[in-house]
Design a protein around this nucleic acid. Structure first.
Lengths: 126, 126
DNA sequence: CGAGAAGTTCGACCGTCGTTGAACATTCGA
DNA sequence: TCGAATGTTCAACGACGGTCGAACTTCTCG
């Protein structure tokens, strides 16, 4: 665990983008987008408590969300202002697509990976 | 190696964002932004040939760049049109920050990681 | 042909990711 | 005070990511 909540100036694009490069976390952002706060439990259809805790930590350490405690609950919110200040347009661009991310739903439905075996150097265009 | 060049409809946000979640690759995008094409060699200050080849493959498989061959060279270009179509605003948002990404420059300058050891549960706000 | 330029691929290595289950912490109500 | 509710932490695991050096492929030019 590196950082608790980075300050606005500590936000780094690579970290933010890798934090968003996971469909579970993207789905979380999608759900936070038109709501002030959510408690962790309200993401339960995205995974187990442990998994959620893990992904929350990633989002928090990247600076995408704030976590507030109230009794035994954690209330999570998007750090919209700081993000818009440092990376204008980022949220606006990503949120619509994030809402459309299909729920990861377990490891089911692996569509028999095509595994298109190709010969060497054959991916070059032109 | 999964895909050679994904089609516009195959572009997936999580893959794109993880491809961008690396400072070397972000720097490459930054350099491609105001130029039609670059050959691989022109990124040489970002790393060795092997490393560049690896990162190029990532960017290509995520659908961010096109690679064209001409004799023994590879000419690389941003897939601007497709990206703007599927994720409007993404490039516009990311490119300015990508240009500002400091070059990874080896593993030098590790600033003696602060290693701020914190007690349990102490990262919660409020 | 042979040498060189420009990249790619391979195998190895090590570190980080994402998931799981079990144990722990904190708070509220009965 | 005991128990349930709500999360967090830990250790372990396999899979993937990024880097390196060595070997290879393709093409061009003497």
């Amino acid at each position: 665990m590196a950082i608790k909540h980075p300050t606005a100036e500590q936000l780094e694009l690579p970290s933010i983008l890798s934090a968003l490069g996971d469909s579970t976390r993207l789905a979380m952002i999608g759900r936070l987008a038109d709501v002030a706060e959510l408690s962790c439990g309200q993401f339960s259809e995205l995974g187990s408590k442990t998994v959620l805790s893990y992904h929350m930590a990633k989002l928090r350490e990247a600076g995408l969300i704030q976590v507030r405690a109230q009794s035994t609950r954690r209330f999570v919110s998007l750090r919209r202002a700081e993000l818009d200040e440092r990376f204008p347009g980022l949220l606006a661009t990503i949120v619509p697509a994030a809402k459309a991310v299909e729920t990861p739903r377990k490891v089911s439905e692996a569509p028999i990976t095509p595994l298109a075996r190709t010969d060497s150097y054959d991916w070059i265009v032109d």
